[in-house]
């Protein structure tokens, strides 16, 4: 019996490694070009400015790993900032406000998950409905921007934690905790492995007796929760609630996850990759702001090109695997 030895670097790690290389290269390019780019604080700032994106990317990674997609995340972020701002204005204590925000996000996620699983609505359409609903609800609360004056929120938002010569914010700590917890869940629990199994082959996962349905709903709840949490971090960042916050953020998040090496068809990817994906996008943005003459729209073009490059890379890997198994029929 012939047993093909697996390649030394399993191909499933390739995209993540590629992402990391891209990160090192872009960051390196920035350091060579600009004085003071390669400082610890710039790296810390990458995390500070993108903490909410990291949390969103974690939630999105769960969803995309099952082969789904969540278009509602940007809208849920906006709704979260709005609920937070409105609740605080109404005099709710900070802890109750946060709880309410997180609960709202999770319930929205649950609703979308049930629509997708029970009614077999395509994830694209179900989360599109979620997106419309969340954005619309923002404006039901208030059409104007509402600023946040609660001392507790302001304290959390502005407090910085010194870490040697650099300092970070609480948001970064929260984001990193979320990443660590997500990695634990994805790799060391049955729920997490079932997420991968569903993305690999849903009918197989069901035949293997795994709780595929529960997981499919669960990932949208997780994404909803992450969106709400990211919304809280975003409201620390902006100190206001507004229905037009985070417009188009779902695209940035999906781009970060794809650049981070997660296959959009599901089953392959790592949260760490998504984090590096966010950092790559953040670095591109930082370089463009350092450049000064380069305008911000280059960010979008670069992200588009990166997306294309990584989609092409994924395509190659999938092809290679199929060749390996001699599965291709044509």
């Amino acid at each position: 019996m012939t047993v093909i030895a697996p390649p030394r670097v399993p191909s499933r790690f390739l995209p993540v490694i590629a992402t990391f290389v891209v990160f090192v290269l872009t960051f390196g390019a920035g350091s060579v070009r600009y004085e003071g780019f390669a400082s610890g604080q710039i790296v810390a700032n990458l995390f500070i400015d993108n903490a909410f994106l990291i949390v969103l990317a974690v939630g999105m990674t769960f969803v995309i790993l099952t082969g789904g997609i969540d278009l509602s995340v940007g809208a849920v972020v906006a709704l979260s900032t709005m609920i937070a701002a409105a609740a605080l204005r109404a005099g709710w204590p900070a802890w109750l406000t946060m709880l309410a925000v997180l609960a709202t996000g999770s319930v929205l996620g649950l609703g979308m998950g049930l629509m997708i699983h029970k009614l077999r609505v395509q994830p694209f359409i179900a989360t599109l409905a979620g997106m419309f609903l969340a954005r619309g609800l923002c404006f039901v609360i208030s059409v104007e921007s509402v600023s946040i004056k609660d001392p507790a929120f302001r304290a959390i938002a502005t407090e910085s934690i010194p870490l040697g010569d650099v300092s970070i914010t609480y948001s970064v700590v929260v984001a990193l905790l979320v990443v660590a917890f997500a990695a634990y869940v994805l790799h060391l629990t049955r729920f997490g492995r079932t997420v991968y199994a569903v993305g690999g082959n849903e009918s197989s996962a069901t035949l293997m007796g795994l709780a595929a349905g529960r997981v499919k709903v669960g990932v949208y709840v997780i994404s909803g929760f992450c969106s709400a949490l990211a919304g809280l971090l975003f409201s620390f960042y902006m100190l206001s609630g507004y229905g037009l916050h985070a417009v188009g953020m779902e695209l940035d998040v999906i781009a970060a996850v794809v650049v981070g090496g997660t296959l959009l068809s599901g089953g392959v990817g790592y949260v760490v990759g998504s984090v590096v994906g966010v950092l790559v996008l953040g670095t591109v943005q930082t370089i463009i702001s350092f450049e000064g003459t380069l305008s911000s729209w280059w960010t979008k073009i670069v992200i588009g090109v990166l997306l294309l490059a990584f989609i092409a890379l994924q395509r190659l890997i999938v092809h290679r695997q199929r060749d390996l198994q001699g599965l291709s029929r044509d």
């Binding site: 499933r12 634990y184 790799h187 060391l188 629990t189 049955r190 492995r193 079932t194 991968y196 199994a197 993305g199 690999g200 082959n201 009918s203 197989s204 996962a205 035949l207 293997m208 007796g209 795994l210 089953g267 392959v268 695997q321």
Partner: peptide, 28 residues
């Protein structure tokens, strides 16, 4: 089945044991 009803993206061990995996402190 004739078609392999397993998940190609998971490890061989997971494909054999997922659903009744050994645990330690709640983790796989």
């Amino acid at each position: 089945y004739q078609e392999v009803n397993l998940c190609p993206n998971l490890s061989v061990a997971e494909n054999i044991l997922l659903g009744r995996e050994p645990r330690r402190f709640g983790a796989i």
